[in-house]
Amino acid sequence: MYTRHQTSKLTQEFWTVFGAYMKPVPSADGSRVNWQNYRTGIRHLFFRINADSTGVSISIVIRHPDPVIGALYYEQLQALRRLLEKELDECWTWRAERSEETGASVYSVSKELKGVNVLNREHWHRIISFLKPRIIALDLFWSKARFGFEGLI
Score class of each variant (00 low, 15 high):
D52F: 11
H64I: 01
L84P: 00
E75A: 08
G70A: 11
W94Q: 11
G70E: 03
E85C: 01
R63N: 07
Q76R: 15
D52H: 12
L77I: 08
S59F: 12
I49G: 03
W92S: 07
V61T: 14
E87F: 08
L77N: 08
I69V: 10
R63Y: 03
R48L: 07
C91N: 12
L83T: 07
I49R: 03
H64E: 06
E75T: 06
P65G: 05
S57F: 14
D89E: 15
Y73H: 09
G70Y: 02
W92P: 05
S59Q: 15
Q78P: 04
K86V: 00
E90W: 09
A79V: 08
A51E: 09
H64A: 02
R81T: 10
G55P: 08
T93C: 07
I49E: 07
F46A: 12
I49D: 05
L80G: 04
I49L: 13
N50H: 05
D52C: 07
S53A: 07
N50D: 04
A71S: 09
R81G: 05
L88F: 05
S57A: 12
R63S: 07
K86S: 09
E85T: 02
G70P: 10
S53K: 11
L72M: 07
I58M: 15
R63K: 10
I49P: 00
Y73F: 11
E85P: 01
L84Q: 02
A71V: 00
Y73T: 00
E75M: 06
S59G: 14
L77Q: 10
P67R: 15
D52Q: 10
Q78W: 13
A51T: 12
S53R: 05
R82M: 06
P67H: 14
L83F: 04
K86D: 10
I62C: 13
T54W: 15
E75V: 02
Q78G: 08
W92T: 08
S57I: 10
V61K: 13
D89M: 14
I62A: 11
Q76Y: 00
E90K: 13
L80C: 11
F46K: 12
S57G: 13
G70K: 04
A79N: 13
I60D: 03
L72W: 01
I62V: 15
N50F: 00
Y74A: 03
I62D: 06
G55S: 06
